[in-house]
Design a protein around this nucleic acid. Structure first.
Length: 250
DNA sequence: ATGACTCGTACGACGAGA
C-alpha cells in the first residue's frame, strides 16, 4: 500500500500540480493539508475521476485537511476526540475547533491527516495552543485502532539536522524541546530529506529547508520504501511543501 | 544572478505561513 502526505497550500491553486502528481505516483491513500477551501469548493469530482474517495474538513479560508483513498474510506472523523479549540482570551475571537484533522479507515488501516498548529512564536498564545493540541492528540491516539498511521504537517522539526541552520531558529518555534517531546519521529535516509522550503529568498535552491512533514506508523507495519518528492517542489506554481511518499508492505 | 514568495479575500493591501 502506497501512502502520501502533502501540504498543498491551497488545493484550488494547486490542482494543476496535484492531479497529475496523483496519476504519476498513484498512492492508495493520501493526506492533504492546507486545502484552504470550504467543503462546497472541494474538488470531489476531479478526484473521483482518478478513483479517489475523499473526506474533507474545511474552514474556508484557512487550514483544511483531507484524506483521499482508492482502497475504501470508512469511519471518517473530522476532528480527533478531545481536539482542543484555539482560545485566545480575547472575546473577539471565540474558541473554535479548527479544521486540522481528518481520520479514516482505508483498506484496513487507520489513517490520520493532521495539520498541527504553527505556534507562531514561543510567547504567542498559539504556541501554548500547539503544545496542548499535541498533548490531546497523543491522548486520542492511545485509543485508536491498530495498525495506525498518523501523518501530515507537524510543524515540528524533530532533530537539529531537520533544519538547514539550527542557529537561525534560536528562540523560535518548530525546534523547541517541548515541541519535540510532544512528538516522536525517526530520520529518513538521506542527508537532507527536507519537506518544506520557504517561497522567499530562493530558499529551495539554497537548500534552506525543514523536515516538518512526517509519517508515523505502528511498529507492526513494515516500510518497504520512503522518499520526499523534491521534484514536486520545482517548476511552475509549486506548494512550499513537497509530498512524502511511503510504501507499506501489508 | 550581487536576487528571488504565495495564498485568499477582494480589487487594495493585509494576515498568515514557518
Amino acid at each position: 500500500m502506497r501512502l502520501a502526505t502533502w501540504n498543498v497550500n491551497s488545493l484550488a491553486a494547486r490542482l494543476p500540480r496535484v492531479l497529475p502528481w496523483l496519476e504519476e505516483v498513484a498512492p492508495d491513500v493520501v493526506a492533504l493539508q492546507e486545502t484552504k477551501c470550504a467543503d462546497s469548493a472541494f474538488p470531489y469530482h476531479d478526484l473521483a475521476a482518478l478513483g479517489y474517495e475523499a473526506a474533507h474538513n474545511g474552514d474556508g479560508r484557512w487550514n483544511g485537511s483531507a484524506v483521499l483513498s482508492r482502497v475504501g474510506l470508512e469511519d471518517v472523523q473530522l476532528a480527533f476526540d478531545g481536539q482542543p479549540p484555539f482560545v485566545n482570551g480575547d472575546a473577539l475571537i471565540p474558541p473554535a475547533v479548527e479544521a486540522r484533522a481528518v481520520g479514516a479507515t482505508c483498506g484496513g488501516l487507520r489513517f490520520w491527516s493532521l495539520y498541527v498548529p504553527n505556534g507562531r512564536s514561543v510567547d504567542d498564545p498559539h504556541y501554548a495552543y500547539k503544545l496542548e493540541w499535541l498533548a490531546r492528540l497523543r491522548d486520542a491516539l492511545s485509543t485508536e485502532p491498530q495498525p495506525l498511521v498518523v501523518t501530515g504537517d507537524f510543524n515540528v522539526a524533530p532533530h537539529d539536522a531537520d533544519v538547514w541552520d539550527r542557529s537561525v531558529f534560536d528562540g523560535s518555534t518548530h525546534v523547541t524541546q517541548p515541541e519535540r517531546e510532544a512528538i516522536t519521529a525517526r530520520a529518513l535516509k538521506g542527508d537532507h530529506p527536507y519537506t518544506y522550503w520557504d517561497y522567499r529568498a530562493g530558499s529551495f535552491h539554497k537548500g534552506m529547508g525543514m523536515r516538518i512533514d512526517l509519517v508515523l506508523a505502528s511498529p507492526t507495519l513494515t516500510v518497504s520504501d520512503a522518499y520526499v518528492d523534491r521534484e514536486a517542489r520545482k517548476g511552475k506554481g509549486p506548494s512550499d511543501h513537497a509530498p512524502v511518499v511511503v510504501d507499506l508492505q501489508l
